[in-house]
Amino acid sequence: VGNTCRGAKVNGRIVPLTYNLNTGEKIEILTAKNGTPSRDWLNPAMGYLKSSRSRAKIHQYFRHQDKDKNIIAGKPILDKELQRQGLKDVDLLALSKHYNYKKIDDLYAGIGAGDLRLHQVGNAARNMLAPQIATSAPEKIQKTNKIHSKKSKGNGIVVHGVDNLLSTIAGCCKPVPGDEIVGYISQSRGVVIHRSDCNHILRAQHDNFERLIEVDWGETQDFYVVDVAIRAYDRQGLLRDITTLLASNNVGVIKLNTNSKRVVESMVDISLQVEVPGTDKLGEILSALNRLPNISEVKRR
C-alpha cells in the first residue's frame, strides 16, 4: 500500500500526505494501480516520512531501480537544490569525491536513489565554496592599502579606505547581512552594494575593475528587502497559507504578484518582496515555504 499510495482521506475529506492525524479520525488511503514512490518523499523538508523504517523502505525501492534512471532523476534534484541555495560554479567532481564517488554520474545516482541526503550535499557544496568566496572577489578588488575604515551613510556598510561616503543597496541582487558583498562606485549614487556573485559585479571585474571597492557589513539596519520566487500547483487557500506563514514568522510582505498564465496546467508563479534581517532568517523562511502543500519550487531571486 505504501508504494502505491497517492493520497489520503480523513473523515471523508482529501488531505495532503503530510497531514498530522488526530485520535479518532477515520482514514482512507488512496492508491494507484501502477503507482510508485515519489522521490520527493525522501526530502526531509517536505515532511512526508516520519520514521526511519519508512525511509529505509523507500531507499530500498529506489536502490533497485536502474542506475541510468537514478542519474536522470538525481541531476535535476541536485541542480534545483544548488539553485535554491544560490550556489554557483560548484566543482561537482570534487563534491563527488567528497562522498567517495569517482564520477559525477555516481553522485547523481546516489541522490536519485536516495542514498544521500539532499540538504547534506547542499551543505557540503556550500562549505567547499566558502574558502573560494573568501579569497576570490575581495582580494581582486583590494587595489589600494587600507588607510582606515568608516561607516558609510545610510545602511551600516563599512567602506574600507573611504570616509563619509553615501552607499545604497543594489536593487538587482538585494544583499542582506550574511551575504558576501562588494561595493561599486557609481557616478550618482555613491557606493552601490552588490552580492559578490551578482552578474553586474562579475562583468565589472573585467570591464570596470577600478570602480570596485572592498566593503563589509557594519552595524546593520533592522530589515532588508529580498525578492523570492515561488512556483506551485494552484489550489484554494494557497496565498492565504503563504501569507499566514510569513506573518507567523514576523516577516513583512512589501509586494506580492501572481501569474497563472503558464504552459503547464494548474501551475502558478508567485513573486514576493519580503523584509528579513539576514540570511539565517531568509533560509528559515525558504525552507518553511517549501514545506507547504502543492509548493514545487522556492528560491531567492
Rank of each mutant, 00 (worst) to 15 (best):
V1G: 14
T4F: 07
G12F: 06
I14P: 02
V15H: 06
V15C: 07
P16V: 09
L17T: 06
N20H: 13
L21R: 08
N22F: 08
K26T: 09
K26H: 09
E28I: 02
I29G: 04
A32P: 04
A32K: 13
D40Q: 14
W41D: 06
L42A: 02
L42I: 02
L42D: 05
L42C: 02
N43W: 02
N43D: 15
G47D: 07
G47T: 08
L49Q: 06
L49P: 03
L49M: 06
K50N: 11
R53K: 13
H59V: 10
Q60T: 13
F62P: 00
F62T: 02
D66A: 13
K67G: 00
I71T: 01
P76I: 11
D79Q: 15
K80L: 12
E81I: 14
Q83S: 14
V90W: 00
L93I: 12
L93H: 07
L95W: 05
K97D: 00
K103M: 01
I104H: 01
Y108P: 00
A109Y: 02
I111H: 04
G112H: 05
A113W: 01
R117P: 06
L118K: 06
Q120S: 14
V121L: 02
R126S: 14
R126T: 11
M128F: 05
L129V: 05
A130H: 10
I133K: 09
S136T: 15
P138A: 01
K140H: 09
K143D: 06
T144Y: 12
N145P: 10
I147R: 14
S149I: 07
K150L: 10
S152I: 03
S152F: 00
K153T: 11
N155V: 08
I157S: 03
G161R: 09
D163Y: 09
N164D: 15
N164Y: 10
I169T: 05
G171F: 11
C173V: 08
P175G: 00
P175I: 05
D179L: 00
Y184V: 01
S186A: 07
S186Q: 04
Q187G: 07
S188N: 12
R189G: 08
G190W: 03
I193M: 06
D197W: 03
N199Y: 11
I201G: 04
I201E: 01
L202V: 12
L202D: 08
R203L: 13
Q205G: 07
D207W: 05
F209L: 13
F209N: 07
E210D: 15
W217M: 03
G218Y: 05
T220I: 15
D222S: 13
D222C: 04
F223D: 09
V225D: 12
V225G: 05
V228N: 00
A229P: 03
R235K: 15
Q236W: 09
Q236G: 09
L238Y: 08
T244A: 14
L245A: 06
L246M: 08
A247G: 13
S248I: 08
S248H: 15
N249C: 06
N250Q: 12
G252C: 11
I254G: 11
K255V: 09
T258N: 04
N259E: 14
E265K: 14
S266Y: 11
M267P: 01
I270V: 15
S271E: 08
G278S: 02
G278W: 01
D280V: 12
K281M: 13
K281S: 12
G283H: 15
I285W: 06
S287Y: 05
S287L: 14
L289G: 00
R291Y: 08
L292Q: 07
P293F: 07
N294P: 02
S296R: 15
E297I: 10
R300Q: 10
